[in-house]
Design a protein around this nucleic acid. Structure first.
Lengths: 255, 255
DNA sequence: CGGTCGTTTGATTACGATCAAACGAAGTGG
DNA sequence: CCACTTCGTTTGATCGTAATCAAACGACCG
């Protein structure tokens, strides 16, 4: 069992979109858990698993994915510190997708029942967690649109914009410069392209003066131009969702 | 205000995956609402709208979609009678997508607050509605995979399989024969292809002896073969989700 | 009977996949 | 400290699936 301060990240994340009172915060901090530190590529959940724990991501990055019958991978979402990983499984008995560590990561494992009890005894927290899953669902929808109807440059630019804003919201950098937490192959699996093509498009984004790359570090040279190329609007992220602590306008005009 | 029996469909839908007690059922039936009958293509919600009502679909079909900056449409989901349409907006202030009628449809409009109160005062119902949104999210994930990583035949076959099972679960036919509620153009927008190509693939599915088409009526000639071509597994639909009324195995081995 | 909407078929194009190989950086072991 | 391996990135050449362009056809409707 780790020091409870760790769960503070989770409190902050939920308060980003839903109002909580002190009792609510305390209840979250008091969640029983064991911390687990995992290496990159460790599976936290496998499709078909019976779900018994809810993982709270305390540090590092994690991703959701599925595999097709012939072994192709589709990445479904990327998760950042403070996010609750298994809310999507918490009322469904069998996991329908895999969750795997992207980087080295620390995850607090909370028993399923503790989350159920939390939701029932602290309605504000229940609403906050529910809202959280609704925002995730909104992001899934945007991804359907992204892979379904946008060409490759637009698609990749869109993902870069999304990361910029989400990393900033998570307090992991600003939206003009950040460290991309994945390889080009993983990027390809997130946008439904091949790694080769992703590489070419990243190059083109650089040549067009939209981004600068130095290894995995992404600097957005011209947010407005990138946003236009990306067909990006931040609405689907619901960053200024009512009642949240952070529900003021972001300091820089973003999208 | 319409006769309350109508909402029975919604009760049945929720009970399909979550246990309810008589008081819960009564609370759902007692939901204040006005019925609205709409023509095909009527918008029920527009992206950017402030959400004040939750629509319960009593008859007909409805779909969610988004438009790209250059006017391309991506259909995000199809909804069948008994489904609650605005659960995804119920805690989010601004709608991030459009909801439009596919066919002539009847929708019971329930004020947002009534849904909030229902969830708070009847925890079983709250959990059922939350679970409902989680299953929707699971379907979104499968669609991300479908448009991201599957080729055109697989993609379309997959959609046909999904409809078969969902229509059967909704009591609108069996999984071997059903009426497709959409045009080939709408189909194309659901799977991220062009209408022309959808037409060719449907033809091919017929030639391969997987389906028979008569106008919009689809007959699945060989479920197993179609399922294989479609790379389809019903897991993501969570049809046998715990505690539900219908949580027995389906009568015919399906997937 | 024209008009509209949806389906069907044909011809050509293009975007991204695939195949192949080299390069660079980081880590390992001798 | 330097070979050697491994993993990720980069570049080039060719291929193929689905898009695009174009037009005819069929059904339903007023």
């Amino acid at each position: 069992v780790e020091p409870a301060e760790n769960l503070e990240l989770v409190v902050r994340k939920l308060e980003g979109h839903s109002p909580l009172e002190e009792a609510d915060r305390a209840a979250i901090r008091a969640l029983p858990h064991v911390s687990r530190t995992v290496d990159p590529a460790t599976y936290l959940v496998r499709e078909g698993d019976r779900t018994e724990y809810c993982g709270l991501l305390l540090s590092g990055f994690v991703y959701r994915h599925k595999l097709t019958g012939n072994g192709q991978r589709q990445i479904l979402s990327i998760h950042m510190p403070g996010e609750m990983l298994d809310l999507h499984n918490i009322f469904l008995d069998i996991a329908d997708h895999n969750i795997q560590a992207l980087s080295r990561a620390v995850v607090a494992m909370v028993p399923r029942q503790a989350i159920h009890a939390l939701a029932e005894n602290f309605p504000n927290v229940g609403r906050a967690m529910w809202t959280d899953t609704l925002i995730d669902a909104s992001i899934f929808r945007e991804w359907v649109m992204n892979v379904g109807r946008r060409d490759s440059i637009t698609r990749i630019a869109h993902l870069l914009c999304e990361f910029a804003l989400r990393l900033e919201a998570a307090g992991l950098g600003n939206h003009q410069q950040y460290e991309l937490p994945m390889t080009q192959e993983q990027l390809a699996d997130a946008v439904g392209l091949t790694p080769v093509h992703v590489n070419r498009i990243l190059k083109e984004l650089g040549q067009r003066g939209l981004i600068i790359r130095d290894k995995r570090a992404i600097t957005i040279e011209d947010w407005r131009k990138l946003r236009d190329v990306a067909d990006f609007s931040s609405r689907y992220l619901h960053l200024d969702q009512g009642g949240g602590l952070h529900s003021r306008q972001p300091p820089v005009p973003v999208a």
